[in-house]
Simulated scan of single mutants.
Amino acid sequence: MRNVDKGFMTAVAISALACALSAHPALAADATQASAGTRSDGTEVQAVTLKAANGVSATILTYGATLWKLMAPDRNGKVADVLVAYGDLAAFEKKPNFWGATIGRYGNRIAGGKFTLDGKTYQLPQNDHGQSLHGGGKGFDVQNWKLESVKSGKVAKAVFSLVSPDGDSGYPGTVKVTATYSLDESGNLQIVFDATTDKPTVLNLTNHALFNMAGEGSERDATTNVLTIPASRYTPVDDKLIPTGELRAVAGGPFDFTKPKAVAVGLRNGRDQQIVYGRGFDHNFALDKGQTSTPRLSARLEDPVSGRVLEVLSTEPGVQFYSGNFLDGTLVGKQGHLYRMGDGIALEPQKFPDGPNHPDFPSTRVDPGKPYRHVMIYRVTTSPR
């Protein structure tokens, strides 16, 4: 009888434990950490992988707080990496391309690498087009961030931090930044950028991931993806891709993505001067939602064949759509794939390009005691056949 009682009690205990584990939300998403290699200066780079219950996973490098891999199941459960990127750390260092990186201090372009704040003009490093791009100089994308914490749970999370000193790449103020990546059990990858400054400055932080929802290296390039952008206006640019200041209606032209259409439609429309300037799409869309307190839809991207869907949500008023126009077949990425134009596209939630030089654009100013925050979400799902 005692043996029966012991067996019964053991069974009860196991059953209770199983129920507790299945009901415990903290086991729904996992976070693991591993070395990704060593930089040329001897600094070790860490890789954190967040994995959700539905098969979605994301791998983030401390180098550039970079979203390196985003694994997404199709409607049949087949998983593919949907991010265009280099396959190893050495390639990231050899020829930086912003792929998947956290961009700062200022995402996108600033004309002449110059802006004026409170009567003082600040000069930033310029590229070969005479402008500042994605922060200029030693941007956030090429710095090794500190990994503050890694946590599994109902929401798996990794927190990365960086201190940008006063005068860094010409920008005023010491800025302390965190990039928090979190993945829930449904496959929502949230990125929260928080920052403080000790002097008035400008900030525009975003992520520069390049997507192909058919899968990185697929025979179907990203121009076959179907895109929706809920924006009735965009910001036209000059021949240096600097906004003119105009907000132009998208209706009736190649920039109208208010209804779903393939990226390829209008991509090579040489009759549209804006397409000629950008060599395709490389423009900011003024989202109809504007600046919001909580993330709202900024873009939707779908591969109709596999059914993989990406929804980009953000609190920011704009999204830069870049159709991979400068991928020229000279760069080798993951799995030895050679990347060419249209193999990946970027959808970067942001304030507007050259914002500090356009008073009518949404303000990019950040002051002491008034922290900066940008919340964005990459929501990975599937569509029915």
Results as ranks from 00 to 15, higher is better:
Gly217Glu: 07
Glu148Thr: 06
Gly173Cys: 07
Asp360Lys: 15
Ala286Val: 15
Asp367Lys: 12
Val45Leu: 07
Arg340Gly: 14
Tyr322Met: 08
Asp328Lys: 08
His129Arg: 13
Val202Arg: 02
Asn325Gln: 04
Thr43Arg: 14
Thr59Gln: 00
Asn127Gln: 06
His129Met: 13
Val159Gln: 07
Gly77Asp: 12
Glu185Arg: 14
Ala231Met: 06
Thr364His: 02
Lys199Val: 05
Phe160Asp: 02
Gly344His: 01
Val332Arg: 08
Arg105Glu: 11
Leu27Phe: 14
Pro165Phe: 10
Gly37Trp: 05
Lys199Met: 04
Val265Met: 12
Ala29Leu: 05
Asp166Met: 10
Arg268Ser: 14
Val150Trp: 03
Gly167Gln: 08
Leu203Asn: 03
Tyr234Gln: 01
Ala53Gln: 11
Ala299Gly: 10
Gln320Leu: 12
His358Val: 10
Ser218Phe: 09
Leu205Asn: 00
Ala249Trp: 07
Ala31Ile: 10
Phe321Gln: 11
Pro371Phe: 02
Pro353Gly: 05
Phe92Gln: 08
Pro356Asp: 07
Gly112Asp: 01
Asp360Glu: 15
Pro236Cys: 01
Ser182Val: 00
Thr38Val: 12
Thr382Phe: 03
His134Pro: 03
Ala111His: 14
Arg220Ala: 15
Gly290Ser: 14
Ile191Gln: 04
Leu61Thr: 01
Val250Glu: 02
Arg385Phe: 03
Gly253Ser: 14
Leu203Gln: 03
Asp30Arg: 06
Arg39Tyr: 09
Phe352Pro: 07
Cys19Arg: 11
Ile14Leu: 15
Leu327Phe: 13
Gly136Phe: 11
